[in-house]
């Protein structure tokens, strides 16, 4: 029984991180699906979302507002606004001018932007780890008190539910709304979409904005869950989320979700049963294995090579 509880605990841990990775991975996958570009600066957008959320929370605390739902909602909105704006600006400044050229050029531009943003926040806010207040505390405990107890914290539940809501909203948006339809059209064939009168530039900007908003949500959630933020943590998270996106099939939104969960669970299981030190090796190893046998990822669309 104890072993089973332990297994479930690691599973819950994994699904929690996985959900957060999924939120960030969506940003990567949407951008790639539409313009075929890896947005290396996305991890930094996530980090900026976390910082903005913390600024908002601290600001509200100084103003004396203590009601939890208000704090969370205001922080979320502030983080989403700043992140989305940043995402939009990054696209206009660094990616649009180099769109369409040899694929290395936007890549270098993206990496440069990533470095720029990391150091921007570093210079503005200092490089130390800053604590995030634990606004949502407590949770459920399963199992008897004298042996291993599985805990499911409210924070973890919040992360699951928020991710689920975001995913559902996004799917509805993509499948039902006009802009969503336009997004799908642009990702299928950008030239044709242009001919049909869709303003592709606006759609591309919209993609960046949506991805950034989701990353901001992840920033707030993970900041609260883990407990501290610093200017460099966006990069690692971004790399993992990117791995998750590729794992699930880059360009596919359900793929990003699946990839995120798989990555989270594999990390957690490796950490729990083998050793925490090699969990990243397992993640990347998994990625390489999947790409060897299914080069477009799990749910990716097979690339047709036109000669």
């Amino acid at each position: 029984m104890q072993d089973l509880l332990y297994f479930f605990q690691q599973l819950i841990n994994g699904l929690t991180i996985g959900s957060a990775y999924a939120l960030i991975a969506i940003g990567y996958t949407m951008v790639y699906g539409i313009i075929g570009m890896i947005n290396f600066a996305h991890g930094e957008i996530y980090m900026i979302g976390a910082y903005t959320a913390l600024i908002a929370i601290t600001g509200l605390a100084t103003l004396g507002i203590a009601w939890l739902p208000v704090i969370l909602i205001v922080a979320l909105i502030c983080a989403m606004i700043v992140s989305s704006t940043m995402g939009w600006a990054v696209e206009r400044v660094a990616y649009r001018p180099v769109r369409g050229r040899h694929r290395l050029i936007p890549l270098i531009s993206a990496i440069g932007m990533s470095i720029f943003l990391q150091n921007y926040v570093h210079l503005a806010q200092g490089s130390r780890n800053i604590g995030f207040p634990a606004l949502i505390d407590g949770g459920f405990q399963f199992g008897s008190a004298d042996s291993f107890q599985m805990s499911l914290s409210y924070m973890q539940i919040t992360i699951f539910i928020t991710t689920l809501i975001c995913m559902t909203l996004l799917s509805l948006f993509i499948s039902r709304s006009r802009t969503g339809r336009a997004c799908r059209a642009v990702s299928q064939d950008i030239g044709m979409a242009n001919l049909l009168g869709i303003d592709t530039n606006r759609i591309i900007s919209a993609t960046f904005v949506i991805g950034a908003a989701l990353a901001a949500v992840a920033g707030l959630l993970l900041g609260m869950y883990y407990g501290s933020i610093d200017p460099l943590f966006g990069f690692i998270a971004g790399l993992k989320a990117f791995t998750a996106a590729v794992l699930g099939g880059i360009g596919s939104i359900p793929g990003a979700m699946l990839g995120g969960l798989i990555l989270g669970v594999s990390e957690s299981m490796t950490s729990g049963y083998l050793s925490g030190e090699y969990k990243d090796v397992v993640s990347f190893g998994l990625l390489i294995l999947i790409l060897l046998f299914k080069p477009t990822g799990l749910l990716g669309k097979p690339e047709v090579e036109k000669i």
């Binding site: 400044v93 660094a94 001018p97 180099v98 050229r101 040899h102 050029i105 936007p106 270098i108 531009s109 990496i111 440069g112 932007m113 990533s114 470095i115 720029f116 943003l117 990391q118 150091n119 921007y120 210079l123």
Partner: peptide, 20 residues
């Protein structure tokens, strides 16, 4: 020196835009 990496990142972006 504090702004080194910041300028480096910005320079990378600018070089790509201006002279890829």
């Amino acid at each position: 020196s504090e702004y080194r990496m910041l300028i480096f990142g910005a320079a990378m972006v600018l070089m790509m835009i201006w002279r890829p």
